[in-house]
Computed example of a mutant assay.
Amino acid sequence: MIYAANLIQPGIRLREWFEAGRTAAAEREARRSAYVRTLQELENTSDRDLADIGISRLSIKEIAYETAYGDQRPSRFVGAQ
């Protein structure tokens, strides 16, 4: 008697899975790049220019994070509003 195993699961294709992973990785890289770029720009800005736009040096990381990732806050910021 011959047994055949059906290894294909309906709805999940390996190629689609890899493409979704690649797309997610590209999105993460783009957001990280935006965070780093914003952080560097704000850190290189003079204190006077930061004061003119209403930003303190203490909030630079949080502003860069919100710029890149939106309202999503990492666990270290949760409850520290």
Rank of each mutant, 00 (worst) to 15 (best):
A4R: 13
A5L: 15
N6H: 05
N6I: 06
I8M: 09
I8C: 07
I8R: 11
Q9G: 07
Q9A: 15
P10L: 10
P10E: 12
G11L: 07
G11E: 03
I12L: 15
I12P: 08
R13H: 10
L14M: 11
L14E: 13
L14F: 15
R15T: 13
E16V: 11
W17Y: 15
F18N: 06
F18R: 15
F18D: 11
E19R: 13
E19F: 10
E19Q: 14
G21P: 04
G21F: 09
G21C: 03
R22N: 09
R22G: 08
T23H: 08
T23I: 10
A24L: 11
A24T: 05
A25T: 08
A25N: 08
A26M: 15
A26F: 10
E27Y: 04
E27I: 11
R28K: 13
E29K: 13
R31Q: 13
R31S: 03
R31G: 05
S33P: 02
A34N: 09
A34P: 00
A34M: 07
Y35R: 07
V36I: 14
V36Q: 14
V36A: 12
R37H: 12
R37I: 01
L39Q: 12
L39A: 10
L39C: 07
L39N: 08
Q40C: 11
Q40H: 12
E41F: 13
E41Y: 12
L42D: 02
L42F: 07
N44P: 03
N44C: 13
T45C: 10
S46W: 02
D49H: 01
D49E: 15
L50P: 02
L50T: 02
A51K: 05
A51F: 04
D52A: 12
D52Q: 05
D52Y: 05
I53F: 02
I53A: 01
G54P: 04
G54Y: 00
I55L: 12
I55Q: 00
I55V: 08
S56G: 10
S56C: 03
R57F: 00
L58F: 07
L58A: 14
L58E: 14
L58Q: 08
S59Y: 04
S59F: 06
I60T: 02
I60W: 04
K61F: 06
K61L: 09
E62Q: 09
E62F: 08
I63Y: 09
A64S: 08
Y65H: 15
Y65W: 15
E66P: 01
E66C: 09
T67F: 15
T67G: 04
T67P: 04
A68T: 03
A68N: 01
Y69W: 07
Y69G: 02
Y69T: 02
Y69Q: 01
G70I: 07
G70V: 06
G70N: 00
D71C: 04
D71W: 07
D71I: 00
R73N: 01
R73T: 05
R73L: 15
